[in-house]
Structures are given as structure tokens and as C-alpha cells.
Design a protein around this nucleic acid. Structure first.
Lengths: 326, 326
DNA sequence: GTGAAAGCGCTAACAA
DNA sequence: TTGTTAGCGCTTTCAC
């Protein structure tokens, strides 16, 4: 900036005025044009770091998810990024790997980096880290997992109702012996989905068939999936608590020849591309785009000074092959 | 920093020394301890923005992909992020949406943000933007798509050989009438995969069966997939050029009842969880983790001053149900 | 319409 | 071992 001011024999402030678009009627058109030209000519790029330091906002937000390679989160992140882009923000994506310490450590770094806001999928015991973020006055929106006692917005779905309803549907269609496979993580959405499953089974007098297989996240996943496989394949239907556990299970199943035709598979999250075989595959759809958009909108409002926090629960849809045909 | 210095009646520089861990033997242990304590007590977080401005490096890198919700890219990004985290870098992820202008515009913003380096999947005509990045002396590594005439590292696989070999295998096993479905994007990997397909078909005297269906990316995807569906389902085998086009095709196929049992499906990229049905599904595996790691390593070297650029081509593997059983 | 000057929070060379 | 000082590149108030 100095350089281009010197070259034109004007002051840095004038250049700054022009380059930051605040020159309406305050700088003569002639000078303005000259400045713009020279800037292009010199291949000048504004130093956002310096601007951020001066004005006190980085135009950076962060999205902390469990794992960006998880399809649900990568789609959510995509939509947040596109919304952020429109509003002039860039996004730092972070993987917590379901680890509280990592989550907290990354949150600290983000605060140091002066991010203007954070959208986070909390880890199982992430309350402290969330509180720290709030303490530092960094706008925060939580998604997917509700965290009791944290003064932040929450965006998600009604996991209990969604799975209860879906299981009831299965039961009413004659599938009695339904088991469930879920990750062994103590997080609200999975617990709620399990509760929905249990309540639906009980209400239908099928408690004897309740069977919940907990799959550890990480290295042990494959083993934990393999072990109950025989029992699982013998049921009428199996309910997968989320996309990730479903795809991992399918990888294992692929080795033993596939899902029996008579078996029904129900999954939380979109598994449409899997509905091509003989067996009945259906799923509970979360409106990811809306969830993402809402999260960003809430964050934006907070960054603009809004102080209120709220819970925003989106409706889900049950999809089976029938509904695909419409 | 000022505050904590005042409170302890010492100077800012001493505090800085301690807090940035450069105090080895230069600051007394007593003072050091005091500083650390007060910092924690005051809930102090270093302002990285100011540090970055001063030292001239932001410890930020960026990964520009087509679309983070694409499974291949989200996995790649995940591994890059984990490598970056270990090296003390945070990553800004950007979607180009296959759009040259968007790519260039985002590259400009990234330069303004003073990112220390960029790992990019170039858009179809992204050469200018890449050159601009290099002009600005921002370390650059290109992945997945090789860009002729750009002085940057490249990391990827031999798309031609991989698909040629896979098609040859199919042919040798009796599948004669093999068609291909690819995205309608003029990018090297897809063109190479097509070339591999064509050459293999010709070499086997099956040119009469060569059929390439080009699917437009975006809104038209579904229509473009639907239209040739009847012809495609009548072939012995179909070769999908990438994960994305495969899953989208499956969504369409799901509505007409699935892939015929006798048909073989070959796909570039991991589709293991789909290998559960009756039909023969196989794929060409790219070593995503290695590609990501190498990309980051190259970027890191560049950021440390390395001036050389090179092409790094990783081997692929053909996977079918057989190989899963080992 | 334009310029001078202060300062955002930090680091690093040098002095004490 | 600790403090002084200059300055990274920008914005913004205030004076001209």
C-alpha cells in the first residue's frame, strides 16, 4: 500500500480508502482510477491479516465435526461453506475424532486464531470446551448433538420420534424380530434413537426381540461388527443408528455374501444409492441442507450481536423404495 | 500481554518470551512460572493474528477441492487435515464447484488471508489461477488432476493404466459388451480413464461395443443418467469413471429395481460397501491416505523453502469380492 | 478531497 | 536475566 501511495504521490490512507471501497465521494474519481490501476499493475493483494488485526474480526469461522470423511458431516460442512462464502466468511474445518481433549485443544487454537464464530458437533464430554468457547465470547452454535447446560444455539432433529415412528412402521408391516446396531458412543442422538427403538418394540409387545449391538468406533469396529453377524442376519430387520455404522457393516457383510433378501434394513441417514438390491432398504432422512443453513444463519446473527439462544428441531422423513417412485 | 506484564511489573517482551516458549534459560524460572500462572488466571489466549502479522506466516493452509461432500475428496481432506494438525497448521477447505472463476476468486481471497500454502484439485481450466498462486510465491501442490504447464508438484495415480488393466481383466473373464459412464468434465483423470477403456476394448477387438455416456455435473445429472439407462442395463458390464457418478447412477437405478444379477459393475474409487448384492461389483482403489500424506509433505517442504517440483504417481489396486475374502 | 498519526497485539534485535 | 524500541500492514479519526 505504501508502495502504491508513493508511486502516485498520495498518502496511504487515500489508497486504503479506495481499496477498501469506502471512497464514495470522498476520493476523486481520477485518483480512484489511478489507484485501482496501479494496484492491479503491481499485482497487489490486500493483507487480510493486518486488516483483521486492525478491525478486530477475521472473517473466519470454524466448523468442528467428528470426522469430515463421514458423509453426513461432509455434506453438512459443504452447505455451511457455501452459505459462509456468500456472507464473506471462510471456514476452517476441524476433526475432533470424537476426542474431548482434541476438541478442547483445537478450540483453544481457534480462539487464538481469532475466528469470528464456531459451529460445533460436540464430543461426548465436550461441555467444558464449549463453555470455554462461550466464556471467550466467541459466538457458538451446536449441531446434531444437544449439550445440556450449555448456553448455545442447537440445531438438530427429533431423534427419538424419528426412530420410534420408523420402527413402528416396520412392526406394523410384519417385521417382528428387529435388532439394532449402533456406535458405542454416549451421545444424545444415538441414545435417543435407541430409546425410540426400545419404546416402539415394547409398545408392540416385542421386548423379547430387543437386541442392541454396540460397535466401538475406530480400530475395533470391524471385529465388533463381525462378532454378532450371524445373529443379526437371522433377524427380520436391522436398524442401523447412522450412516457410518451402516456402511462399515456393509463392508463386513460383503465378505459373507450379502444381506438376505427377506431381511429389511433401516438406517438413519440417506442410503439411497444402496437401494438397488433385492432386499428392502429404507432410511430416515435428515434435512441436511436446512440444518446447515440454519446453523450458519444463527451463527451469523450471533456474530452480528444477537444474544438469544434457542433449540431448532427439524422434521425428518421416512424413505422407502415406494416413496422413491413418486 | 500488556495486562499481564503490568500485573507482574515486568515488560511485555518478557511475557512474550515465556508465552511463545522461547524462554529457555533466558528467563528465570520464577518469573516464568508467575507468567504462566497469571496467563491461565486471566484466561489469556495469544492473538495469533498479531503474531502472524509480525512473523509473516499464518500457519494456515488451504485445500481447494471440487466439492467436500464428494467422498473421495472428503477422505483426502481428512487425511491432509490430520497431517497438518501434527505439523501445527490449520486448514481452510474450499469448494470450487468445478468452476474456474470461483476457483480463481477463492484463490485470491486465500492469498489475501496470507495462507502459507495451498493444496488444490484444479478446475477444468484452472491454469491461470494456478499460475497466479505461483506468481504470488504461495507454495502450491496440485492433486488428482495434472495441469500441463504449471510449475507445481503433482500427486495422483496412473489413470490410464489403471482403467486399461481393469477393463482387460473384465474382457478376459468373458464380459464383452462393456459400456462406460463418466462425468462430462474435461479433466485429465476422466479423459485418461476413458482412453484406458477405449484402448483395452480395441485391443480385444470389441470396438463395436464401445459406448461412452457423458453425464453432466449438476442439475442435469439425473436426466442424463436416466436417458441411456435401458441400453446400459442391457450390457455385460458397466464402467463408472468415479465414485460420484456411480452413486448418482445407483440412486436412479434404485427406482427401476436394481442392477441385473448377471451384470458386472466396475468403478473407479472405493465402493466396497456396495458389494453386498447378487451382482458382481468391483473397483479400482486409489491409496487416498498416501496421496494426502504425500501432498502435505510436499507442501510442507515447499513452505520450508524447497524449490523443486515433481510428479508423484501412486499405484492403484483392483478389488473384487475375491480379494475381499483374503 | 487528502494527509498525518495513532494503534491493533505481537516479536525480535539490541541495549542495559 | 530483563527492558526498550521499532515495526509487521492495515484502518480510522481528525485536521487541513
Amino acid at each position: 500500500m505504501q508502495d502504491i501511495a508513493r508511486r502516485l504521490n498520495i498518502s496511504r490512507s487515500t489508497v486504503s480508502l479506495v481499496l477498501s471501497g469506502k471512497s464514495d465521494g470522498r476520493v476523486s474519481e481520477a485518483v480512484k482510477k489511478k489507484v485501482l490501476e496501479t494496484a492491479k499493475e503491481m499485482n497487489y493483494h490486500l493483507n487480510e491479516l493486518a486488516r483483521s488485526l486492525r478491525v478486530g474480526s477475521s472473517n473466519l469461522i470454524s466448523v468442528i465435526v467428528t470426522d469430515i470423511s463421514n458423509e453426513f458431516f461432509s455434506q453438512m460442512t459443504f452447505h455451511i461453506q457455501e452459505a459462509a462464502k456468500k456472507a464473506g466468511y471462510l471456514v476452517l474445518t476441524i476433526n475432533s475424532n470424537e476426542n474431548d481433549d482434541e476438541f478442547e485443544q483445537m478450540a483453544r487454537i481457534l480462539i487464538s486464531k481469532q475466528v469470528d464464530g464456531i459451529i460445533a458437533v460436540p464430543t461426548p464430554d465436550g461441555t467444558d470446551a464449549l463453555k470455554m468457547i462461550i466464556d471467550q465470547n466467541v459466538p457458538l452454535v451446536t449441531v446434531d448433538r444437544y449439550c445440556e447446560g450449555v448456553e448455545a444455539d442447537y440445531v438438530g432433529v427429533d431423534n427419538y420420534e424419528a426412530s420410534k415412528k420408523a420402527i413402528e412402521e416396520l412392526l406394523s408391516q410384519g417385521f417382528k424380530n428387529i435388532c439394532m446396531m449402533r456406535l458405542d458412543l454416549d451421545i444424545p442422538p444415538l441414545n435417543e434413537r435407541e430409546r425410540g427403538y426400545i419404546d416402539a418394540m415394547k409398545a408392540a409387545g416385542q421386548e423379547k426381540h430387543i437386541a442392541i449391538h454396540r460397535i466401538r468406533f475406530g480400530e475395533e469396529m470391524e471385529r465388533d461388527l463381525m462378532e454378532p453377524l450371524k445373529d443379526v442376519l437371522a433377524t427380520d430387520a436391522v436398524f442401523f443408528s447412522s450412516h457410518r455404522v451402516f456402511t462399515e457393516a456393509m463392508k463386513v457383510v460383503a465378505r459373507v455374501g450379502g444381506v438376505p433378501d427377506r431381511q429389511c434394513v433401516l438406517c438413519f441417514d440417506d442410503v439411497r444409492p444402496y437401494m438397488t438390491g433385492a432386499s428392502d432398504i429404507r432410511y430416515i432422512e435428515q434435512p441436511i441442507a436446512s440444518i446447515a443453513q440454519k446453523s450458519f444463519d444463527l451463527l451469523l446473527a450471533k456474530m452480528k450481536g444477537d444474544k438469544q439462544t434457542g433449540k431448532y428441531v427439524f422434521p425428518t422423513r421416512s424413505i422407502d423404495r415406494q416413496s422413491l417412485l413418486k
